[in-house]
Design a protein around this nucleic acid. Structure first.
Lengths: 235, 235
DNA sequence: CGATCCTTTGATATGTTTCAAGCTTAGTGG
DNA sequence: CCACTAAGCTTGAAACATATCAAAGGATCG
């Protein structure tokens, strides 16, 4: 399971054995559970096995900003290896399963197995690249573009993770959470989503979304997937 | 000079020798020069020896968003080690000196010297932490808070780098660049800055700024330096 | 089948942008 | 050393995108 590493870095047999030998702890959490809290001294690093999670921070005014969204196969807090205190929270967006490994074990593994360290490093670099794109998204794009961009990113990442077959997928975020991810109000998110619907860009049914016109969606969202640094199949 | 690594990670003698043996290339560039361009296939990784630089991306509409600001001692493009094509540009904000090391040499060094790899990894994790805070800044804070936050961060980082003695420092950004960093218009940045001035929060003289009331500035900017993960002296 | 959470909609308020022009500063060449 | 020029800063008025407030309608789950 943990062998998603090999996406970006070939591993040797010894590496795989070392991974398998890791002390694991599989947990199941209900939607809304906190995995890490801002200010915590986390003891573990966690990998999402199923479900969705997000990371977020809160301003002094009490406004929340979602920093990233995670799906099966993502590490949600790899930076815990080196930081003693967490600078943000991680919360389950749905029921989730995750395997947690003690920080010390992950650190020891990284020090003894260069290929694994490198794979983990690359993971954190991709994370950072997505952060950069999000800064642009909330900083310089209008509400339509912002939301469309988020939907495009989420969809492409689902595909890359093998979690989307066709153009329909379920979005594990309420409109309020969507708003917190793009820096808008829930009310405005609602209006923009309705507009997309009316324009025939997407279709909505409960919490699931179909991208009707991918090319146009991509254009509206000013979306270019290079920053995901994935080996995505072309669409 | 490169031994800023030791800030976060103790190195052995062999590590220091390996660093010193690195093939270097010292360059001097004038303000405005591009160090890396979005879409480039960079051949080197660079460390800023003097001056200031920023990283930025441009939207399809042509709007620019500055992603980070860098000063003496910062690596400006460490992710080049693993990514073949750059997802953003790096540009000099002032005259800069930088030492550039071939990607392959940096990669080899990282593979043969775990302590160095670890120090570099931590650098990129701190980068990512600052990105997260910037997402919050542009996503959920109003114009005053945003700008004040940026000024606080810049000032604290200058102090951490030993580049600010008292409460006066020179800001290497035009108001337009400031605007691109916080996701506002130059006009609005100008008004907010004037308001800070009139309220006695800051004083301005040409391109240099004095933080008159640090405590209040910090409060206005909703600034808490934990995310910088520095060993900052307290203020 | 009631209660809660989420979505939708309308009316109004506001922060920020846009446009446009004048002003200041720093740099350059005569 | 002065005049000229370009870049950056400042200011005002009007426009606009998004937020806020408020209330009703749906969905989901004990």
């Amino acid at each position: 399971m943990i062998t998603r590493f090999e996406k970006h870095e070939p591993l040797g047999d010894g590496d795989r054995e070392a991974l398998a030998a890791l002390p694991q702890n599989v947990r199941t959490l209900v939607s809304g559970s906190y995995i890490v809290r801002d200010g915590d001294h986390p003891e573990t690093c966690s990998l999402l096995v199923s479900g969705f999670a997000c990371r977020h921070k809160t301003t002094g005014e009490g406004a929340r900003q979602i920093i990233s969204i995670h799906m099966r196969g993502d590490f949600v807090d790899l930076q815990n290896i080196f930081f003693d205190v967490s600078d943000h929270s991680v919360q389950a967006l749905s029921a989730v399963e995750l395997v947690s490994v003690p920080r010390s074990a992950v650190r020891a593994l990284a020090m003894s197995r260069p290929a694994i360290a490198r794979a983990m490093w690359i993971e954190t670099l991709i994370d950072a690249s997505i952060f950069r794109e999000w800064i642009v998204n909330v900083g310089r794009r209008d509400s339509r573009t912002r939301l469309a961009h988020l939907l495009c990113e989420f969809f492409v990442r689902l595909k890359m993770a093998g979690l989307a077959e066709n153009r329909t997928f379920s979005l594990p975020l309420t409109q309020e959470q969507l708003a917190d991810a793009v820096g808008l109000t829930p009310v405005h998110v609602n209006r923009v989503l309705r507009a997309f619907d009316e324009e025939g860009l997407i279709e909505r049914d409960r919490r699931s979304i179909t991208i009707v016109d991918w090319d146009r969606m991509r254009e509206v969202g000013d979306f270019h997937e290079r920053y995901l640094h994935g080996n995505a199949a072309s669409f």
